[in-house]
C-alpha cells in the first residue's frame, strides 16, 4: 500500500513497463531519504518524445522549528539554567545558538550531555534548527536523483505547501513549463 494519499504517474507512449518501474524507483528513493511521510500527494508526468520529466507534490502540514526544549530538558538552577541533552544530533546547532544569544563566557559544558547557562533568561523557546529548510534541501536532492540523469535543465518551484520540479534535455521554455503544468492539472482533476 502506498504511504501517500495519491500517487499518480503518467508516461506518454507505449511505456507500461517504464511507468511501473519508475513508480517503484520513486518510492525506493523517497523512502531511502526518509521523505515519504512528509509528502501527501504526488503527481509525476513524463513525456518520452519531448523529452520532459515533471513531478508535483503536496506536502503534509509544515514541520515546526526545533527549539531548545525539544532537544533536552531545561531546568532552573542556582544562578542560571541547565539543559540535559536528549537528542545529540543537533548538539552543534544548540551550542551555536546559545553562544550567539548568551556569549561563550556564559555557556559551559561540564559533561557531554549537560550545558549550563549563566543567565536569568529561560532558553527553552530559542530556535535550534529550522527543520523545514533541511527537509526542503533533502527533497531537492531526492528529486534530482529521481529525474533521469540526462535531463540537465532543471527548474524547482518550492513553497511550504507544495513543490513543482521539471527537468528536460532541451532548454526549458515558458511554453513547455505551462504545457507541463496543464498536464499535471489534468491529472489532478481526473
Amino acid at each position: 500500500m502506498d504511504p501517500m494519499e495519491v500517487f499518480k504517474i503518467v508516461v506518454t507512449g507505449q511505456e507500461d513497463f517504464g511507468t511501473k518501474k519508475y513508480r517503484e524507483l520513486i518510492m525506493d528513493i523517497l523512502q531511502d531519504l526518509g521523505l515519504i511521510r512528509s509528502i501527501g500527494r504526488l503527481y509525476v508526468y513524463m513525456d518520452i518524445m519531448d523529452p520532459v520529466f515533471a513531478i508535483y507534490g503536496l506536502l503534509r502540514t509544515g514541520i515546526p522549528p526545533l527549539t531548545v526544549k525539544d532537544v533536552g530538558d531545561v531546568l532552573k538552577t542556582e544562578g542560571g539554567y541547565q539543559v540535559k541533552i536528549n537528542d545529540e544530533e543537533h548538539m552543534s546547532d544548540l551550542l551555536k545558538v546559545l553562544w550567539g544569544r548568551f556569549g561563550r563566557e556564559r555557556v559551559e559544558q561540564p559533561a557531554r550531555d549537560i550545558v549550563i547557562i549563566a543567565s536569568d533568561t529561560d532558553p527553552s523557546a530559542l530556535t535550534v534548527a529550522d527543520l523545514e529548510t533541511e527537509f526542503l534541501q533533502d527533497l531537492t536532492d531526492g528529486l534530482v536523483r529521481v529525474a533521469p540523469e540526462g535531463f540537465r535543465n532543471r527548474r524547482n518551484e518550492m513553497s511550504k505547501e507544495s513543490f513543482f520540479f521539471i527537468a528536460a534535455e532541451e532548454t526549458l521554455t515558458p511554453e513547455l513549463i505551462a504545457k507541463t503544468k496543464e498536464k499535471i492539472r489534468e491529472m489532478q482533476n481526473a
Binding site: 508516461v11 507512449g13 507505449q14 511505456e15 513497463f17 517504464g18 518501474k21 519508475y22 524507483l25 518520452i48 518524445m49 533521469p148
Partner: peptide, 15 residues
C-alpha cells in the same frame, strides 16, 4: 580492447 561488453540501460523502450 575487451572481449565483450555489457551496456546497461534504463526502463524506457524509446530511450
Amino acid at each position: 580492447e575487451h572481449d565483450a561488453a555489457v551496456f546497461i540501460f534504463g526502463n524506457f523502450r524509446e530511450c
